[in-house]
Structure formats: structure tokens, C-alpha cells
Design a protein around this nucleic acid. Structure first.
Lengths: 244, 244
DNA sequence: TCAAAAGTGTTCTACGTACACCCATGG
DNA sequence: CCATGGGTGTACGTAGAACACTTTTGA
């Protein structure tokens, strides 16, 4: 039984590099930054995420997740939030740590690298900025190019987590503006999970859960009865955000 | 909007220290290492976990989670497994990454520190080693001493995860020997969740889930009908282990 | 033959699904 | 007045909770 050294949080050794990467999901990408050839008028409600073109080796020229090194005086959450802002120009509607990746050989040339991955949701109530943001393009989650490092694995884990949370929580509402119709919410829900829900049952289930409540106002559009608008029920929703 | 630097996995900066800490759960601690005054004959089935007495500043003399620095040539999972082995003398029945903690000011004196936390389960089919393991004591999970750093937060997150997995998966069986009775499994299940399940319903639910299957043999003990022994159903249980 | 735990059967309720049907609106 | 989506009502099936009951053993 080797390794007599137990415990110890602070021992100083040759430290690996620590980076934070982030998988950002949105329902509608900024039109100016849609990657060529990926739009599909047949499917208006799809999952999109932004990628960054790498400028340096290794993987120069390849697409990668947005990210950056962990700054000395910033928490993991802060670095993730700053990366998101620099990539999209918007703060997240939901930001959550995903998983940490630290296998050896993740980067062939670079020194040892540990990546702490986050995932985030953006609402579509503000247009995403496109000016002043270079080397970024948005791709549909089901039509991604080859990615640098093991970033494809990270995206897959993020998709799993997003679908799991969508199935049991109201996470889908965070894609939308503060006020939304239940039909909009159902479309997002179905787009994420790949299902087709019954509108009546979706409505009842959601109302019974107490996660949303009507705002009182209506939205009229098209030749049919206007839809009631809903919002998140504010207040104590346990464990929406993990600790940091 | 500051921070023009996007992307980049490999940029070299002053790296923080990276450590791996682990929360190890077991149902029965090694008798020789039970912390004084924590045993309770009234409750034979309880959750226990090992702590390590710190030798260095900061927090010298305080109890802390087992852990160690991330070695250059080891993956996160490997370091977690090695720490577990050094602390308990046994390999884990279940080992899973928990969360990464990287707030600033976690360690007042040490340089910046990022801790990647794991949690593990030990089976009680082998006696835990006590010889050659120093500075380690086992405590009941509901009667822990004050812990160094923010390790108390880590334990709380691990408890939440353990309870969540116990509620929807057969994770409780990993505390037991390969063959077990449903009554044993139910006791573990209830000890972890703090519930008292109906034996009949527990039996039916578990059998219907297909997660366990009878081995064919019986166990006779006490003045009552012998109990059938069960085992994990081997094979494709999706997502028992997250990626690394 | 009795206590004790293993194991089975039965009922009740909650909740999700399927689907028929009514409501309100613009054209 | 009709097509369209919003919204309600209702019947069915499955799964868990509660609990009465039978089975098998050691003493």
C-alpha cells in the first residue's frame, strides 16, 4: 500500500493548469452569428450553442467551447460568468457547474490541464450581441462540427444534464422571456427532450406543480383565442443553484 | 465589456493548486478506528465516514476530509481512488465525482486552491484495514466534529447526492456484500434516507425495478422463516458511472 | 404452539396519458 | 360562420402506500 501522504488541501506541487469552459444553450441564436449552412426553416425551435475558433496550437483553426484560465482572484462561478458575458454579451438566465475533466493526455502538447465545465441557459428576451464579438459562431446542438480537445464529451454531458433538468424541473422556462405562454414553454420543452407533449396534459401538470403562475395579461396573435401569460413562481425553489 | 480573451484551454498563467478530496461512506466502520464517544448501540445501522487529522497549518489539529494533490501523471479518478485506498485499505464499491470547489479565500494562508471532491461507498463484506493507517478516525455522518476549510459544505453536498441516488437507484446495495437479503437492503435504504419503509412494498418495488435478482440460496438466522438472498442484476444499467 | 420475520394479496389513491369537447378570436 | 389554437372534462392505466393475511422457521 503506497502513498503514505493523506489529507492535505494545500500541499504545493507542480500545479496543473486550470481552465473553465462553458456550454451555453439558447433557443434562438443571434442571426448575424449563425454558422453558414446550419439554419433550417422547418424547425424554428432548436437548441443552439456558441463555439469559438481557436487561434493557437494545439487544435488551431478548430472549433472549441468558450473558456478561459482561472484567474487568481476569481471564483469558478465568476470566471464562468465572465466567459459567458464575453462570448454572448449577455448574463445567463441559469448558470451551473457541470463536471470537471482531468484525464491525462487531454492536450497533447500543453502541460497537464484540468477543465472545470459549466453550462448555462440564455433567454431570448434580449437580442444577443454580435458586434465586437469575434471568432464566435452559433451551431445547432444536433449539428456540431468536430471540436478541439475532448470538448465533444463535455457537450454531451451538458446535453444529458439539460434534458434531465428539463424533464423534472421548469428549467425550460429560463429559455424564454419573463412572461410566456404555456404553448411556448411546451415547444421548448419538446425541442429539448425530443418529445411531443399533449398541450392539455402539459398545462395541467405544470400548473399543478406550482412552478408557474398566471400574470393576468393575455397575448393575442393569430385567428384564435388569446393565450394567458405566465411567469416563474418566485420564492423558495430548493436547490436551483448548487454551491460553489 | 472587458476580457477580450476567449476560449483557450491551454493558456499558461500562475496556476492554482489542485487537490482531490473524497467523502467515503460506509455502514459499519472498522471497530479499531471508531472515534471515541460516537458509537451508539441503539442504532446499529448508521452512516459513517473517515476523517483525517491535519498535521500542518492551516487548520493543524483539525479534522479534514482525506485527499491529496493532483499528481502530474494521474487522472482525477485515479487520484481519488488512490486516496481512498490509502485511507481505508479497500477499493470503492462506487466512486463518483461530486463537485469542484474554487471560491477565493477557501484557505486563508495557502495560495489559491481548487478542490475537486469525490464521494465513494464501501461495502462491508471485507473488514476495513486499521493497521498502518494513522491519523484516521471514523465518525457518524450525523455527528461530525468541526472540519477544516469548507469541508463541511463538501460533506453536505455528498450527503445530498447520496440520498438522491438512494431514492431513485439501487445505490444502497453497494453498501452490502454481493449477496444480501431485502431486509438488509431496506435497512440501509432507510438509514440513508431517514425513512421507515413498508417491507412488503419495498420488496415489490425493488423486484419490479429489475435491479436485483434472487441468487437461489437462503439465509437462516433467528426463529423465523429464512430469507432469500439477492444480488445486483448485472448488465446494462445506464449511467452508473459518469465520464471522467 | 408461539413469536418473529419472510413473503403475498387487496384496496385505495395519486398522477400521467389519451382523447373528446367547448371557448374565443381574426378573417 | 369557420378555421385555429387556447383551455376544460373525463375515462383509463400504472405505481406507490396502507395494511390484512399466510408461510416458515427456532425455541
Amino acid at each position: 500500500m503506497p502513498m503514505p501522504s493523506l489529507n492535505i488541501d494545500e500541499r504545493r506541487t507542480q500545479s496543473p493548469d486550470v481552465a473553465v469552459s462553458i456550454v451555453v444553450f439558447a433557443i434562438q441564436p443571434p442571426a448575424a452569428l449563425v454558422a453558414p449552412g446550419t439554419a433550417d426553416p422547418e424547425r424554428p425551435v432548436r437548441l443552439w450553442l456558441p463555439l469559438v475558433r481557436r487561434l493557437r496550437e494545439p487544435y488551431a483553426g478548430a472549433w472549441a467551447l468558450p473558456g478561459g484560465p482561472l484567474a487568481w482572484d476569481r471564483s469558478l462561478d465568476q470566471v464562468a460568468g465572465a466567459t459567458l458575458l464575453a462570448t454572448t454579451g449577455l448574463p445567463a438566465r441559469h448558470l451551473e457547474q457541470l463536471y470537471s475533466f482531468g484525464a491525462t493526455g487531454r492536450s497533447a502538447t500543453a502541460p497537464r490541464l484540468v477543465t472545470i465545465a459549466y453550462w448555462a441557459l440564455l433567454a431570448l428576451d434580449q437580442p444577443l450581441a454580435a458586434d465586437g464579438i469575434d471568432h464566435v459562431a452559433w451551431f445547432p446542438a444536433d449539428a456540431l462540427p468536430d471540436l478541439a480537445f475532448d470538448h465533444r464529451d463535455i457537450v454531451d454531458v451538458a446535453l444529458d444534464r439539460l434534458r434531465a433538468k428539463t424533464a423534472y424541473a421548469d428549467i425550460a422556462a429560463r429559455f424564454l422571456a419573463p412572461e410566456f405562454t404555456l404553448a411556448e414553454l411546451r415547444q421548448v420543452h419538446d425541442a429539448v427532450l425530443g418529445t411531443t407533449s399533449d398541450p392539455a396534459n402539459f398545462r395541467r401538470r405544470l400548473l399543478a406543480s406550482g412552478q408557474v403562475e398566471p400574470t393576468g395579461s393575455l397575448r393575442r396573435e393569430g385567428a384564435h383565442r388569446p393565450a394567458r401569460l405566465f411567469q416563474f413562481t418566485p420564492g423558495p425553489h430548493p436547490r436551483e443553484q448548487d454551491p460553489a
